[in-house]
Write a protein that binds this DNA or RNA. Sequence first.
DNA 1: GCAAAAGTGTTGTCCTTACACCCATGC
DNA 2: GCATGGGTGTAAGGACAACACTTTTGC
Lengths: 248, 248
Amino acid sequence: MKREAETNLSTSQQAKLIKDATKLVASYPKVPITVDCVIFGFDGTELKVLLIRSDLEIFKGSWSLLGDFAGDNEELDEAADRVLRTRTGMDGVYLEQVRTFSKPSRHPGGRVLTVAYCSLLNIEHHQLKILDNELHWHSIQSLGDMAFDHKEILDYCHKWLQKRIQEHPLGFNLLPDKFSLRELQNLYEVILDIKLDRRNFRKKFFAMDFLIDTGEYEDDVPHRPGRLYKFNFQKYEKNKKSWVGIDF
Amino acid sequence: MKREAETNLSTSQQAKLIKDATKLVASYPKVPITVDCVIFGFDGTELKVLLIRSDLEIFKGSWSLLGDFAGDNEELDEAADRVLRTRTGMDGVYLEQVRTFSKPSRHPGGRVLTVAYCSLLNIEHHQLKILDNELHWHSIQSLGDMAFDHKEILDYCHKWLQKRIQEHPLGFNLLPDKFSLRELQNLYEVILDIKLDRRNFRKKFFAMDFLIDTGEYEDDVPHRPGRLYKFNFQKYEKNKKSWVGIDF
DNA sequence: GCAAAAGTGTTGTCCTTACACCCATGC
DNA sequence: GCATGGGTGTAAGGACAACACTTTTGC
């Protein structure tokens, strides 16, 4: 069953099969593909998103996600990395694929697919080294219309992020290595756009038992300093839960 | 901010902008795109998946998902529908986009992206009207290697489905209009591949309060007949929960 | 001493789990 | 009458929500 044909064939026969496959692929319709990066940033206070002015004349004045077409033999994950690198100068940012958008009318220049990638990072840990097209952080609260279907993509990714952060410890990458529980709670409140009870929040995280007490304290705060914790990524990786339970 | 340039322009100026955009898009690299349908089926006993023999000589003997390239101006959702229709004769099946796979080496004939779509249906409600390429249902337990990266795609979709069915009432489409709780529980046990406690399962669903007691009973069962219920889709739609709580 | 946030516990409610017996039906 | 699954309740433990006061620090 395992590629019988292939494994029993001579090299030249194989070469022929590959040539056939190549010919077949060459006959497929081809479509321009872009990747769009939805980079959410947290500055300790607010959730923001990184936008540029659209390159396209027709969208002059509109804000746009960071996008570019995918190169001829480029994996999409790499394309997304490249876009982020070349548009912002940021490096080593973890991106996750969210969804592919394919409405034929989404690009005024004809049919273009786009694959949305999403990240969440601490604005203060990542310097924008390139500022072309007025690249900057926008508050998530005050977004107007955007180029293409980018508002729809952004909204989709925002919801995706809100769900994601409840199920995965994304948030700890946004904080300093050592952080106070106020910082942690604030992060969740901002991203989820809700208020949480302080005592219950603490209980919750202590019960999860993924926080390491460093024994150190904040300084530079104009009030009583809080204890500083680290997130125990190793323990988390080991204990990852797989089952959640039917609930809808 | 809202497309200033556009809204203030004459029709001919707009036409020019569209032409420019079209020219730009024409300069993008283009990539062949396929859609692959991962159709899970439930027959009351087992979880199965719909496969065909690969069209490609190089994968002769290997099983493959239902796929085809996307047409030139075809939205991907429609392409997935079309693939399913033309490969199986099934109509009106609800498909959800799961993920795009882009490894450059995934197709022996060169770079081809594929977008995976997933569905879950009751095998007995959907007749296969076309059986080309040995189309048939395969038990999910006994899958060997597959063509392309289709095993990887299938595994990804299987996990996606297991998560999805816990958070959305997908399962009710698999059952007859009126169903017994045994049928419902069996469905979850098979799809999630776990055993559930019968009393707790009942309590759970009664507590959710989305089941309507029809007052009717099974017949044709070789044991005491169970009550038949319907799912209250309207009530579910109204009460959909949005918040689940931090948990990882 | 005042402002601001840290730190801390209890209670009630609800959900989850584990578990065992009698009942109705077909054969 | 036997096999098969239907139908039911309870008790214990765990999670969650609501809620207020004292402490520490900077200013």
